[in-house]
C-alpha cells in the first residue's frame, strides 16, 4: 500500500468520535457474550457482583480475568494470581510498543491514556485503522473505539454476574469462539491484500504451538515469545509501508 503524505485531513471531534465508536462495534458485540460468560463464572467462583464488575473496570483483560476467577475458586494465593496475571498480560507490553509507535505524534497524556485501554482486540482494530492518525482530532477516534469496547466489557460482566446460570451452557460454550472469530475476521482481509502478512501470522501460530505444547511454556510467555520472534522474522519480508 502507498503511504500517504502526512497532512492532516480536517475532521471534527464529534465525527472522529462517531467513526471510532463504529470501528469499535465488532469488539462491542464480540465482548458482550464473553463478558457475560466471565460474569457467570466469577459469581460462581464466589465473587460478589461488585467484585466481579470491579475486576472488569480495573483490569480490563479477558483471559486474565477468567484465569483469576478460576484460581480464586481453587483457593489460590494473592501472589500466585498476581504473578499469573502479569505473565498472561505481558503481551500487552509488546503490543503497546507497536501502538505507541503508531501514535507517536500524540502528546504524552493522550498516549498514556490510550495505552491504558489496550487489549488484544482494541490493539488489533486500532492497528488496522492506522490511516486515522493522518486526520485531525484522530485521538478521539481511538478513544471512542476503546470506550466502546470498555463499556461492553463492563456491562456484560455486570449482566453475567446478575444472570448467574440462566444462560444455557451450550450457548455460552458456542460463544467461546467469538473472539477467535474476530481475530480471524480482522486478519483475513489484510492477508488477502498482502500474502506476506499471512506468512507472518502462520509462522507465529506455529511458534506459539511449539512453545506452548512442546517447550511447555506458560500460555502468556508462549504468546509473547511467538509474537516477538514471529514479528522479527517478518522484518526481511515486509516492505517499509506494509501493514497500513
Amino acid at each position: 500500500m502507498k503511504e500517504e503524505v502526512v497532512m492532516e485531513t480536517e475532521q471534527s471531534i464529534g465525527s472522529a468520535f462517531k467513526q471510532g465508536s463504529l470501528a469499535g462495534m465488532p469488539i462491542f458485540l464480540g465482548y458482550m457474550p464473553i463478558a457475560i460468560a466471565y460474569g457467570v463464572l466469577a459469581s460462581q467462583s464466589g465473587l460478589t457482583i461488585f467484585e466481579t464488575t470491579m475486576m472488569s473496570v480495573l483490569v480490563f483483560a479477558g483471559a486474565a480475568q477468567f484465569m483469576a476467577a478460576n484460581m480464586m475458586a481453587q483457593g489460590a494465593l494473592f501472589l500466585q494470581i498476581v504473578v499469573a496475571t502479569f505473565v498472561l498480560n505481558f503481551r500487552h507490553f509488546i503490543m503497546s510498543m507497536s501502538f505507541m509507535n503508531q501514535l507517536k505524534n500524540y502528546s504524552l497524556p493522550w498516549k498514556f491514556g490510550l495505552s491504558l485501554g489496550l487489549t488484544d482486540e482494541t490493539f488489533a482494530v486500532s492497528a488496522l485503522h492506522k490511516k486515522e492518525t493522518n486526520k485531525e482530532n484522530s485521538m478521539f477516534f481511538y478513544l471512542a473505539l476503546i470506550l466502546t469496547a470498555y463499556f461492553s466489557w463492563i456491562v456484560g460482566s455486570f449482566a453475567g454476574a446478575l444472570l448467574g446460570e440462566i444462560i444455557p451452557s451450550q450457548l455460552s460454550d458456542s460463544m467461546g469462539i467469538a473472539l477467535y472469530a474476530m481475530f480471524i475476521g480482522l486478519l483475513t482481509p489484510s492477508v488477502k491484500k498482502e500474502w506476506r502478512i499471512g506468512v507472518v501470522a502462520v509462522i507465529s501460530m506455529l511458534l506459539n504451538f511449539i512453545f506452548s505444547e512442546f517447550v511447555g511454556l506458560d500460555t502468556g510467555w508462549a504468546i509473547v515469545l511467538a509474537t516477538v520472534v514471529g514479528s522479527l522474522m517478518a522484518i526481511p519480508m515486509m516492505k517499509e509501508d506494509d501493514a497500513s
Partner: peptide
C-alpha cells in the same frame, strides 16, 4: 518494520493453538 509486523504476529499467536 518490526513494530508494524507485531499486530499480525500477535493475531496469529492469539488464534492458534
Amino acid at each position: 518494520k518490526w513494530l508494524n509486523a507485531i499486530p499480525f504476529a500477535a493475531l496469529g499467536a492469539l488464534i492458534f493453538p
